[in-house]
Computed example of a mutant assay.
Amino acid sequence: MSGHGEERRERRLDPGARAGPVQRFAADLRALRESVGCPTYQAMGQNLPFSATALSQAAPGGQHSALAVTLAYVGF
């Protein structure tokens, strides 16, 4: 279990040719986050109207996230 202020390591995504559109989109979201220094979801949540949990759930690629959450994630 992670301590306060630590984040769990994210599950690896394979955005290759066999991945579906949701997984490729999730990989793009992660790449975008990495391109701005890989802020924690907690830090992102302090500057956005969504919780760290909502933001972290946009990244795994298992399901579609709400449009508003995705737009906030991209706009961070």
Rank of each mutant, 00 (worst) to 15 (best):
R11H: 14
R9L: 14
E10S: 14
A31Y: 10
Q42D: 07
A26W: 12
R33N: 09
F76N: 04
G62K: 15
P39S: 14
L29G: 09
M1A: 11
Y73I: 05
L13N: 13
F25N: 06
R18N: 09
P21S: 13
A72R: 01
M1C: 09
A68P: 01
Y73K: 06
T70H: 00
P60F: 09
Y41I: 04
Q46G: 11
F25Y: 09
R9A: 15
Y73F: 15
S35G: 07
E34V: 10
R18E: 07
A31M: 13
L32K: 15
C38E: 10
E7L: 06
A58G: 07
Y73S: 04
H64G: 01
Y41D: 04
G61M: 05
F76R: 14
A66G: 11
T40F: 08
P15Q: 08
A66I: 07
T70S: 00
P60A: 05
V69L: 02
Q63F: 10
Q57T: 06
F76H: 14
L55N: 03
S51K: 02
A31W: 08
E7F: 07
R24E: 10
G61I: 04
F25G: 03
A31P: 08
F76P: 00
F25Q: 13
A72E: 03
S56I: 00
S56M: 04
C38D: 14
G61S: 03
A59P: 13
G3C: 06
A27D: 12
Q57S: 06
A26M: 08
L29C: 10
T40A: 06
G75C: 07
Q46T: 05
A54F: 01
Q63Y: 10
R33G: 04
L67I: 04
D14N: 15
A72W: 01
G3M: 07
E7W: 10
E6D: 08
S2V: 05
P21Q: 12
R33Q: 09
M44Y: 08
G16V: 07
R12Q: 15
P49F: 00
G20A: 03
T53C: 05
S65L: 07
A17Y: 11
L48Q: 06
R9E: 14
T53N: 05
N47W: 02
S2D: 02
V36F: 14
R8C: 00
Y41T: 04
G5L: 05
R24K: 15
P15R: 14
S56K: 10
L55K: 03
S65V: 14
A27L: 10
P21L: 12
F25R: 15
Q46W: 05
S51H: 01
G45A: 14
R33K: 15
R30M: 12
A19Y: 12
D14V: 13
A66Q: 15
R24M: 07
F50I: 04
L55A: 02
